[in-house]
Design a protein around this nucleic acid. Structure first.
Length: 263
DNA sequence: ATGGTAGTAGAACTA
């Protein structure tokens, strides 16, 4: 039986409408099976669906004004689409979309940044990771072909942050978050990017406020592609594509990509 | 040094 390639990427676009030139060019050049977006920052009625369809893609999306918003762009329609947590607070913003493509369950998340350790948003962030762990325990099995990706707003290792000794305790490099992150990983996930690339200073986010951040290496690896072991065994490549971050009018994040050979 | 920029807004918040 012949195998098929499956290419997927995660990209926090920081407003999908502002990023359409970069996103459409990236889709044309890479032709992924799926592109998971975060921070689309647009209500569903204003989502630029037609431009994606003209480029030959389907999109499942949910958003709101100003903040949050997630989408999965795909060559074939996303199956079994679910948004958010069941029974989550009514006022909770759209931060998660899941579905199935080519037999692979995809969970795309935009995890709360946390603002400040003293802010209630930080407890909300830790609780968000906890709820995600409960969801994995309840709905999925480590034996499934499952991929969790998105802006996790968490750097797992010192080599995933510039000047880690100074950033220790930052909401995106914090032991309390790391504890829950590891609990989810121990459920049965592999960092597919790290399976293929052990180099330090591989960053997916560069703050707008630090001039020439890419050139100076002032970034964070907080966008991730994590998969169950059976899917990780099928991965053939993973990398961070810095090109979109270096273009005019970039997002502050850049795509993380993984490729698989499926049965 | 606790700043800096960008997005959505149409002032101030979020990241």
């Amino acid at each position: 039986m012949s195998k098929t390639t499956f290419k997927i990427a995660t990209f926090n676009v920081n407003s999908v409408r502002s990023r359409m030139p970069i996103v459409l060019e990236w889709l044309r050049e890479h032709g992924p099976d799926a592109l998971c977006l975060q921070e689309t920052k647009v209500e569903d009625k204003d989502f630029p669906l037609g431009e994606f369809e003209d480029a030959g893609f389907h999109v499942a999306f949910r958003g709101q004004k100003r903040w949050n918003g997630v989408a999965i762009v795909s060559k074939t329609p996303l199956e079994k689409v679910v948004f958010g947590f069941e029974g989550g607070p009514e006022e909770e913003g759209p931060r998660m979309i899941s579905g199935v493509l080519s037999g692979v369950t995809i969970v795309n998340t935009y995890i709360p940044q946390g603002r400040d350790v003293e802010d209630e948003q930080f407890a909300y962030k830790v609780g968000w990771f906890e709820r995600l762990h409960e969801r994995f325990e309840a709905r999925y099995r480590p034996e499934d072909l499952l991929l969790w990706c998105g802006d996790l707003n968490h750097a797992p290792e010192p080599e995933d942050v510039y000047e880690p000794e100074k950033k220790e305790g930052h909401v995106c490099f914090h032991p309390e978050v790391d504890r829950v992150y590891r609990k989810i990983m121990e459920w049965g996930l592999v960092d597919v990017f790290r399976k293929h690339c052990s180099e330090p200073k591989q960053y997916s986010f560069y703050d707008y406020r630090l001039p020439n951040g890419v050139k100076r290496g002032l970034g964070w690896r907080i966008d991730h592609i994590l998969t169950t072991r059976p899917l990780a065994d099928k991965s053939t490549a993973a990398y961070i594509d810095l090109e979109p971050r270096l273009k005019p009018k970039p997002s502050d994040h850049t795509p993380v990509v993984a490729e698989f050979l499926l049965d």
